[in-house]
């Protein structure tokens, strides 16, 4: 695959308020770096992430979308991440079925105590997106500059 050295991916990370957003804060206060391509959107729970948001991000030119929530069983709202898990599994499977690179979407469970994991997860995800290159299959061409 041709790797464009100018390529700066756009990566949207949906993080639940209770675990993963706090995990990202911990990564920050522990100075555990990950690429600046990742931009975090706070949601109350991973179950707030609508498949529409994921598609919207790709439409607007995102190259990767990652959703982070509490570990299954640890959801602040007891059950939210269980629903998110099913929804995203099915959505990702559908995107794969449509021929969209499956590496562009991911769900990871990161607790408030897992700053290291947050940084590792983001580093791995970003490097995957660099490998995949620009998202051309699922973007709205009008949103490309």
């Amino acid at each position: 695959m041709q790797v464009n050295s100018e390529f700066k991916p756009k990566i949207v990370a949906f993080c639940c308020n209770w675990c993963s957003y706090a995990g990202a804060d911990l990564a920050g206060s522990s100075r555990l770096s990950y690429p600046a391509d990742v931009k975090i959107i706070k949601v109350p729970c991973s179950c707030r992430v609508n498949p529409l948001f994921v598609l919207r991000a790709f439409e607007k030119g995102a190259d990767g979308v990652i959703i982070c929530g509490c570990h299954p069983g640890d959801c602040h709202y007891s059950t939210g991440n269980y629903y998110a898990r099913r929804r995203m599994t099915l959505l990702f499977s559908m995107l794969d079925y449509l021929g969209i690179e499956k590496g562009r979407t991911r769900v990871e469970w990161v607790s408030a105590a897992e700053g290291v994991k947050f940084s590792t997860v983001m580093n791995n995800f970003v490097s995957k997106i660099y490998q995949l290159g620009e998202n051309v299959k699922l973007g709205d061409l009008r949103c490309r500059k």
Partner: peptide
């Protein structure tokens, strides 16, 4: 308590979450 599980289950978008609305997140 504002988790938002209902908002994604709702196909018509009738259910929304104040402070984290569909349009705000988009």
């Amino acid at each position: 308590q504002g988790c938002g599980a209902c908002t994604v289950t709702c196909p018509s978008g009738a259910m929304d979450l104040k402070g984290f609305t569909n349009r705000q997140i988009m």
